[in-house]
Design a protein around this nucleic acid. Structure first.
Length: 362
DNA sequence: TAATCGTGGAG
DNA sequence: TCTCCAAGATT
């Protein structure tokens, strides 16, 4: 696009955004903390999914101080089901830093804000532009797709090496006087009109500027490199009953599902049966002897980079005292109290079955 | 750089 | 059922 076209491009985009923007809960506020929360939740997560989480989260933690003062377990419980739990851990930690080092005021410039945990280039540009109208251009999946089509950029959108190019083009087009609206307009247009499949070009306010549309090549943008196949893992977990309570363990604070609670278990070994794996893993993780009573469920679940088939067993405590090797903590809890803890989705899938009567023998 | 990190919607 | 991919950050 010719640089001389940029002013008209911006005007068209902003006019469209003013007419068509969705009334989202985080658009009712100028509070940088609330905008920050929304941007963290929106990472790799659709607007539709985020909305109820955002409303509940802000009701529970209405200010940065309230979040900074909360227990991480309460934060994770609010985050339960949203995924990518490092976002919640980092946001919580970042707020404690802002409280200590900045008196509870969200930094309004790049340097001090960008260094906070969980704040990358996107979040920094989004929060600073939307809350403080600072002239930083955001580059998310929407913006990359839109730019790839608009300018027929052949750089694959899912390669790190492409990022600089998209960032430069976004910065070049940015309306520096209305950067918050401009950024949101770009993303909104990508979400509503310049969609991944079957984009609504006749409704697009920028169609006259679009190189892909001009050459009839919209469907060939954005370019993307093939993703590698996802491995499938098989695992077994046991719900161990003892005196009317069940044993739950807490995952280590870092890494996959860090800080969440789960039922003990682990991967099957080569040639090992699910029930045997269940007994062995429980012995290894918490040093208990258990007896498998019945098969409770088989759960299939897709994580970000692998899939799992989970064999779930109802077990009875037989002998031993808990000595942990792996889990960060453990509890014996009543079924009615399981809802107080944050569990991964794969566990939530079978928890409702626990209050039913045991089924057939294995 | 590329792998890791969840879950759900949509085709 | 499978794949893509969504307001990305970290290591």
């Amino acid at each position: 696009m010719n640089p001389a076209d940029a002013p008209l491009f911006r005007r068209r985009l902003l006019e469209w955004y003013q007419r068509r923007q969705r009334p989202l809960p985080w658009r009712k506020t100028h509070d940088p903390y609330r905008i920050w929360v929304s941007e963290v939740m929106l990472q790799q997560t659709q607007v539709k999914t985020v909305q109820p989480y955002y409303v509940r989260f802000i009701k529970r933690f209405p200010t940065l101080r309230r979040l900074a003062g909360a227990d991480l377990q309460d934060v994770l419980k609010q985050w339960e089901g949203l995924g990518y739990y490092a976002r919640a851990r980092n946001l919580h930690r970042a707020c404690t830093i802002v409280l200590k080092q900045h008196g509870g005021r969200v930094p309004d410039t790049w340097g001090p804000f960008r260094v906070l945990p969980g704040v990358g280039d996107y979040i920094a540009a989004a929060v600073l532009s939307i809350a403080f109208n600072r002239p930083h251009a955001v580059v998310d999946g929407n913006v990359k797709r839109l730019l790839a089509r608009l300018l027929t950029l052949t750089a694959p959108v899912n390669r790190a090496a492409s990022h600089r190019l998209f960032q430069e083009q976004a910065a070049r087009l940015l309306d520096r006087r209305r950067s918050g609206d401009f950024n949101q307009a770009m993303m909104e247009l990508g979400a509503l009109v310049c969609t991944p499949s079957s984009p609504q070009c006749p409704l697009c306010p920028l169609v006259r500027f679009c190189a892909a549309h001009r050459s009839g090549a919209t469907a060939r943008f954005p370019r993307r490199v093939a993703s590698r196949p996802v491995p499938e893992i098989e695992a077994a977990v046991g719900v161990v009953f003892k005196n009317g309570r069940v044993l739950i363990t807490q995952r280590p604070a870092q890494g996959l599902l860090g800080g969440l609670w789960e039922f003990p278990g682990g991967k099957l070994r080569e040639g090992e049966g699910p029930a045997a794996a269940c007994v062995r893993e429980i012995k290894e993780e918490v040093n208990l002897e258990v007896v498998v009573e019945s098969a409770l469920a088989q759960v299939r679940h897709a994580y970000s980079h692998f899939r799992i088939r989970l064999h779930v067993f109802r077990c009875r405590y037989a002998a031993g005292r808990v000595r942990r090797s792996g889990p960060a903590a453990h509890r014996w809890v009543r079924l009615a109290d399981l809802d107080r803890f944050a569990f991964p989705k794969a566990n939530r899938k079978f928890i409702p079955l626990l209050s039913r009567r045991p089924k057939a023998e294995v």
